[in-house]
Design a protein around this nucleic acid. Sequence first.
DNA 1: TAGTATATGCAATTTAATTGCATATACTAT
DNA 2: ATAGTATATGCAATTAAATTGCATATACTA
Lengths: 139, 139
Amino acid sequence: MKIDPVSILKEHDLKHTKQRVRVLEEIALDTVAISQPDLEKKLGKEIDRVTLYRILNTYQEKGILHRIMDMNGTANYAICSSSCSEDHHHDEHVHFNCTKCFKIYCLEVEVPRIKMPKGFLAKTVSSTAYGICEKCNNI
Amino acid sequence: MKIDPVSILKEHDLKHTKQRVRVLEEIALDTVAISQPDLEKKLGKEIDRVTLYRILNTYQEKGILHRIMDMNGTANYAICSSSCSEDHHHDEHVHFNCTKCFKIYCLEVEVPRIKMPKGFLAKTVSSTAYGICEKCNNI
DNA sequence: TAGTATATGCAATTTAATTGCATATACTAT
DNA sequence: ATAGTATATGCAATTAAATTGCATATACTA
Ligand SMILES: [Mn+2]
Ligand SMILES: [Mn+2]
Ligand SMILES: [Zn+2]
Ligand SMILES: [Zn+2]
């Protein structure tokens, strides 16, 4: 899937600023999710820390990015599927968190349906597998 | 299941201190997991913040508690099933995170088996459902 | 091109987590 | 019961993460 930051911004009625474009570019570079700390490092002083926080929040609200928390409570971000919108995300795929390289993959695997106990009404389910990723397996 | 802090400490070769007992008591009060911030509030100045961090860490390592991260990256703690040990946790049940009261429940539901793509080796899978809990449903 | 709305950067706060060290406490051996 | 040893605790200091307020810069509209 090709990412065009500029048109993504247009589609979501967001102003076109170089910081916003930059963040999308950086995240689109790799297919795996990127952690907020890594993102900060990559961007260095191109973008103010606070601005980055704000951009990531807006992107998440608008359905441009989805946030995946890793086992340490660190935020990771990945591009949403094209069908996500402000009101509703459609990113119910399984995530894979490598315990060696710590990368987080968005797998093309649907989150399995889970039968809830009486009284509990599940709206979304998140499912993360922890283990060794394909790259780390081949080393 | 009845919780006896003192014997739990014995079983795991941990020194019996009033702070450790206190933490276990507090967590055992409710069947739902308790968040670290809530725990801090409850304990007030009975226990130093740093000590609490350390106690929670050792309990987790020893397989006495398991940690569940909520959607905001906040740590929540719940008693482990009796079969958990230092080397191996057996807490692969589904968690339910209420989006209204924010409580986290350990459900008696096994995490479903997920088929991994070639190359990915899953060791554990975590599964959390978000929605409205039984209590909030009845209000 | 001027006017308006909002995004950005910077400084200041607030909150969370970690580290080092002196003292207190639990357990062991006598 | 007591003394000796190991380690848990509390406190102070650091480090790191996140939030807020506000002045200025920038993008879009008319
Ligand atoms: Mn994903
Ligand atoms: Mn649990
Ligand atoms: Zn890996
Ligand atoms: Zn609830």
